[in-house]
């Protein structure tokens, strides 16, 4: 035992730890650079370098990024677009999760002729490159009068998010005993009774996983945002991209970085507090979808 302990503190262990820590620094570096740049003034950015700590930290860049930076022709900062994203994300996440829960319940416990085919066909939707649906969707939205609206974006995110949410719930519910469902049916319990009394109480983990997955996906979306939003309804990713590419006067890298952190903050916070579930969602979506 002692010999074992002794030999474990050898050159190999030190090498492994050094490599792991080295990479930890590499992964953290961009976040550090973003933060420290966002706290510097433009003079210091020009004279110092990326890795230097801010001499005289200032929140100027944060204030400007939030409320007065130009994102194209308007100069209202990211704030309005942050709220656009909130308005898009909340309904889209809730609706797609609820639909996914019921779909998954049916596909695992109320199978009917063709339900497997349906599931296979839906799964395919997790993989298609969205470029292939962009044009017709644009036309459908304009026919529905939803072009450039928040509701239009919610609809698009629900439609293309349901494939994933269904997959998550189906794979979770399939592990629950079918006997239980059969027994409840013999007792006269109906479709919704069984869902409410048997499935819902044990579904908290999968709801958390699905909600976190959908939240990150939709908050981080750029493609649908840039194609289907208009001047006043852009989500934060589109606004951030516009902000970075708008240079009225000199380029203010500190404002760019503050804006980038603002855009990343909601998903980062979710990740820090619910990382376990986030990883579970990723691997569930990964291994199957």
């Amino acid at each position: 035992m002692i010999a074992d302990k002794f030999s474990s503190i050898n050159f190999g262990r030190i090498l492994i730890y050094s490599i792991l820590i080295f990479f930890a620094f590499i992964y953290l570096a961009p976040l550090y650079v973003m933060f420290s740049t966002s706290l510097k003034d433009i003079e210091e950015i020009r004279s110092g370098n990326l890795l230097a700590l801010p001499n005289d930290p200032t929140l100027y860049a944060w204030a400007k990024a939030w409320s007065s930076a130009c994102t194209g022709s308007e100069c209202k900062g990211l704030a309005p677009f942050f709220w656009n994203s909130v308005k898009i994300v909340f309904p889209a996440v809730i609706i797609s999760t609820i639909i996914g829960a019921f779909n998954g319940y049916v596909l695992s416990k109320w199978k009917f002729k063709g339900s497997e085919l349906f599931f296979g066909a839906l799964l395919f939707g997790c993989f298609i490159p969205f470029q292939v649906i962009l044009l017709p969707m644009a036309i459908l939205l304009s026919k529905l009068g939803l072009s450039n609206t928040v509701s239009g974006l919610v609809l698009v995110h629900v439609i293309y998010g349901v494939a994933f949410t269904t997959l998550f719930f189906r794979n979770y519910y399939i592990g629950i005993s079918t006997e239980l469902v059969r027994a409840a049916r013999l007792d006269g319990a109906g479709f919704f009774d069984i869902f409410r009394h048997i499935f819902l109480p044990i579904s908290t983990p999968i709801f958390v996983v699905t909600i976190i997955w959908q939240f990150t996906q939709i908050w981080n979306d750029f493609l649908f945002g840039v194609v289907y939003s208009g001047a006043g309804t852009q989500p934060i990713t589109v606004a951030l991209n516009n902000l970075v590419n708008t240079s009225v006067g000199g380029k203010e890298y500190n404002v760019d970085m503050a804006a980038a952190i603002i855009a990343a903050l909601p998903t980062l916070i979710v990740y820090v507090f619910a990382g376990k579930y986030f990883v579970r969602g990723l691997t569930a979506g990964a291994v199957k979808g």
Partner: peptide, 30 residues
């Protein structure tokens, strides 16, 4: 350590692009 390696996955590609655009900035970056 695992958390540190994985956090970039929670960020959007737009934020990643913005950050690296600054890090790789010719003149002021690396």
């Amino acid at each position: 350590i695992r958390t540190i390696y994985l956090y970039p996955m929670a960020i959007s590609f737009i934020v990643t692009g913005t950050a690296w655009k600054w890090i790789l900035n010719p003149g002021l970056g690396i």
